[in-house]
Amino acid sequence: MKKLLPAVYNPLLLAGPAIDQTGVEERTTRFTKRSIKAASKMQGLLLTLRMIDLTTLEGKDSVGKVEQLCYKALHLHDIFEGLPTVAAICVYPSHVHTAKKALLGSSVKVASVATAFPSGQSNLPIKLEETRFAVEEGADEIDMVISRGKFLAGEYAYVFDEIAAIKTACGAARLKVILETGELGSLDEVRKASQLAIAAGADFIKTSTGKIQPAATLPVTLVMLETIRDHYYKTGTMVGMKPAGGISTSKLALHYLVMLNETLGADWMDPHWFRFGASSLANNVLMQIAKEKEGCYQSANYFSVD
């Protein structure tokens, strides 16, 4: 693994185009009008499953709960042969060890939230310590939160340096940076935070913790995808995207994929570059797959609750 130097803050990193909210909303409405049926729907549904970060982030999470969720990650619906697994399991650092063990030998990654998730209200040494702990426990991916209080107060250098330091602490683990767009107030701020996170070394940018409303929306995700595109135009480097929270139906997930397909294109239509952070989406997709295969909807009782 190549030793990476931490990124250095420069105020010019924040310079970006203005965002017109009405225009963004009009564009996202167009994505919802593409026709996804039959073969193209099946293709989209299977890809959606492969892109899911199956998530449990609750105070009451226990070893038993995490083990069951890991089993689900590997066996989404065994009655249907040939279904893929999800991309990753997303848990708190204290459950990384359990998840890692349960998923041993599979290609399902373990992602861990860190840095005083979900509020981010702690100091840097503690956040670094938490990150290192999660990585040592075996996390393949770290989902950090930015310090929104500092960001909104204009302390961009602080936020930048924090991300860069966490990135260093991640070592080989991929870093997802959660902007918590529901707290940022405008699409201009979403754009600015996206640029900041990418410049500081984010491998992925992620909309939300799932603990704040609104969580992921099509307009917010489009602005972030367009930031990723501008970064690619400039440097040729790909950055991943993870909308999280509030995406619980197949139909909505397919709208996101249409948006991805028409904004960043085929190279990003892959779990390595796009994830859905969701807990109930998988079952909804499975129900749709069942419907496509068998021509009618099945009762929710046929699908495991986790």
Binding site: A7, I36, K37, G236, L257, V258
Partner: peptide
Amino acid sequence: MATKKNKSSIRPLRLGSEWPYAPAP
């Protein structure tokens, strides 16, 4: 940090036809 590539060597985005939408006449 990402190393800056020569602009002309950046692969164009693959937009268009890889995920064909369903005909909806």
